[in-house]
């Protein structure tokens, strides 16, 4: 026979254990998703920031923010898409503030604090194409950038990206196409490939 328990939501003595149980359920549910989606938040942030330390900070912030507002997410199956958006937004914010800081530091830096010029060996060792790619990626429109980064991640199909971003698969394909094309236009002068006769 099923046991019935009288619960008084307004009563403190019985309400507290119930509340704690609900919180524990929420925490457990979030933890289940954390292991699966934590790397995704990091990779999105890494794709925008291209810096491991900053990406880790942003991923932490994104996951913490997701946890704080976890009960607002009615469809828990949308957690990945939701987390991707949070991570992308936070990463963009961090990127903008980093740029502002760099500009400020450049303006206020003293001649004595300027690092010594890179040697020829350093320049040769640096991945020049990657630097240009990073810069070109930064200049992409946000909606193209997010889709391209998600497409570059391992294990993401077009359908999954469409589900995460909330757009049709055809739109995902066209955004990937235009994003790659724009990147190629910016990098072609560095790759020095096509020249018309």
């Amino acid at each position: 026979m099923q046991e019935l328990v009288l619960i008084q939501p307004g009563g403190m003595a019985r309400g507290e254990p119930l509340r704690e149980a609900v919180e524990a359920d929420g925490r457990r549910e979030f933890e289940e998703r954390l292991a699966e989606c934590g790397p995704l938040a990091y990779r999105v942030a890494r794709g925008v920031l291209r810096n491991s330390a900053d990406a880790e900070d942003v991923a932490q912030e994104a996951l913490l923010s997701a946890y704080r507002h976890f009960d607002r997410l009615r469809d828990r199956n949308r957690f990945r898409a939701w987390l991707v958006r949070i991570s992308f937004r936070l990463a963009l914010d961090r990127l903008r503030s980093r740029k502002r800081r760099e500009v400020r530091d450049t303006l206020w830096s003293q001649p004595g604090n300027v690092p010594p010029p890179a040697t020829a060996e350093d320049l040769a060792a640096s991945n020049e194409f990657q630097t240009h790619l990073d810069r070109a990626l930064e200049e992409l429109p946000e909606k193209l950038r997010l889709v391209l980064l998600l497409a570059a991640m391992e294990g993401h199909t077009i359908e999954e990206i469409a589900g995460m971003v909330g757009i049709p698969t055809g739109t995902v394909k066209s955004r990937i196409f235009y994003a790659r094309k724009q990147l190629a236009e910016k990098l072609r002068c560095h790759a020095n490939t096509i020249k018309t006769r």
């Binding site: 954390l34 491991s52 990406a55 932490q60």
Partner: peptide, 30 residues
Amino acid sequence: NLFASIDAGLHATVNAKVPVSLLPRVRARL
């Protein structure tokens, strides 16, 4: 080759190894 380089660069950027400290730190902050 240009598009292959772009794809490789993007792949390297977004599929970097996730630091092992990420999830423990997140749990501690939670």
